[in-house]
Amino acid sequence: MASKLTNEEVYTLLKNAFGDKVGEMLTPFDLLTVEVAAESANAIIEWLKKDEKLQVSYLTVLGGVHYPEDKGREIAVVYHLHSLVNNFRIRLKAFLPIENPTIATITYLYVGANWMERETFDFYGVIFAGHPNLKRVLNDDSMDYFPMRKEYQLEDATREDKDDRFFGRE
């Protein structure tokens, strides 16, 4: 089923509505990818959902990425949205500084975002302002770091059961 919208069309609408809150248009593998200003991410998602023509009203997935080298914009929150009516997918990215990774929640738009946001908090420490119950979802509450950030190793740092010499870790 072909998409009823083109990337250019949606991008132009988005740019006209939000101006400089919307970054340049990228289309890796034909999927419209737009960087948005973190403070207006939820407004843009709301607009996409409520717009009568676009009807981007299905949240496919939401997650984080950590770019430690990119100073001031270390944490990215990535939204994949889907317009089931038009069969059109769009990816939005908002970048946050690691000192204060705060972004508005979208749980009031999509109930399903609840756990996805909690997971992103659990993995990357992103604070979703206005989230009804922002606490760890997969890891134990007693965990004191955000394991998916690049500086943390995969293995458990406190383990005693393995001889480091056998794993190339002195």
């Binding site: 890796p28 593998f29 999927l31 990818t33 496919t60 997935v61 997650g63 990425v65 990535v78 994949h80 997918r89 990816r91």
Partner: peptide, 20 residues
């Protein structure tokens, strides 16, 4: 280098892979 989202219809629904 690239960024990709690919989904398949898994047993339980849309199983997606978002790869950077």
């Amino acid at each position: 280098v690239g960024e990709i989202y690919q989904s398949v219809e898994g047993g339980n629904g849309e199983l997606g892979f978002y790869l950077i």
